[in-house]
């Protein structure tokens, strides 16, 4: 048989160049999941002349606690070399490795902006840039909920919150992460005074809603603590420590409070 070894018309082929006749339709394979959830929660509230970003310091994988101290809130644009102090803060919650990568990218960009333009990046510009970074990985997203905080051009507290692919919005307050669903309605009520009305201002629909006004710093700090102690009670991924970064015109202040470790 002359062609005993030649490929059969219906059978497989020998050469790499000749496409296999047998198409591999039902390829079964394990797959690698490039994401994980490291739990935790973050929260941001603005006041008239300050912004607070807070996050718990627990890092989890499944039911394990990786560590009791893994910060989720970072200063952006700080430079030990030039003594340039930061005026922007970023919190990231979700997949911690992506969170760190995102933080480092934004940090580098804010520093480069300072070197190239000779002035610090505005929070508004930084917010837009962060959105672009997130959208840049639209088809392999950074699996994080980010919140950016600082002071705007008028010196008022500014807060921007993001979804993993870069949709963003400026807000007065925002909770993100594992316990966001627990904290957010509490904040609606206590920061934006939702469902609160002025007593005796009218009957039925004439009743006047209580207007949201910026809260003083001490009150906001206490609200943050209350929100987190509540979340700790009811969410297993939240606990260990509470880290707060407070941005004012005098710079960034860091506050750490212990939370329950159970």
């Amino acid at each position: 048989m002359l062609n005993a070894n030649s490929p059969l018309a219906s059978g497989p082929s020998y050469s790499f160049a000749t496409p296999p006749n047998q198409t591999s339709t039902n390829i079964k394979q394990h797959s690698f999941n490039p994401y994980t959830d490291n739990g935790g929660s973050t929260l941001g509230i603005t006041g008239d002349d300050f912004a607070i970003l807070a996050g718990d310091t627990r890092s989890t994988s499944g039911y394990n606690i990786n560590t009791r101290y893994a910060p989720k809130v970072f200063k952006i644009g700080e430079d030990d070399g030039t003594g340039e102090s930061a005026h922007i803060v970023l919190s990231v919650v979700g997949f911690a490795a992506d969170g760190n990568a995102l933080k480092e990218r934004l940090n580098a960009i804010v520093k480069m902006y300072r070197y190239q333009h000779g002035k610090p990046m505005s929070v508004k510009a930084c917010a837009q840039r962060l959105s672009t970074i997130l959208y840049g990985k639209r088809f392999f997203p950074y699996y994080v909920h980010a919140i950016l905080g600082g002071l705007d051009e008028e010196g008022k507290g500014a807060l921007y919150s993001y979804d993993p692919v870069g949709s963003y919005e400026r807000e007065q307050c925002r909770a993100a992460g594992a316990a966001a669903s627990l904290i957010m309605p509490f904040l609606d009520n206590q920061v934006n005074f939702k469902n609160q009305y002025i007593p005796g201002s009218g009957e039925g629909h004439a009743l006047e809603a209580r207007k949201a006004t910026p809260l003083p710093r001490a009150e906001v700090e206490q609200l943050v603590r209350d929100a987190f102690t509540s979340a700790v009670e009811r969410h297993i991924e939240v606990g260990d420590g509470l880290q707060m970064l407070v941005v004012t015109k005098n710079g960034i202040e860091e506050i750490y409070d212990p939370l329950k470790k159970d």
Binding site: A179, S181, L182, I183, M184, P185, F186, N189, Q190, D226, A227, S230, A231, E233, R234
Partner: peptide, 10 residues
């Protein structure tokens, strides 16, 4: 979830 948050807080 939301009720746990508000109740625990209020």
């Amino acid at each position: 979830d939301q009720l746990f948050g508000t109740c625990e807080g209020l």
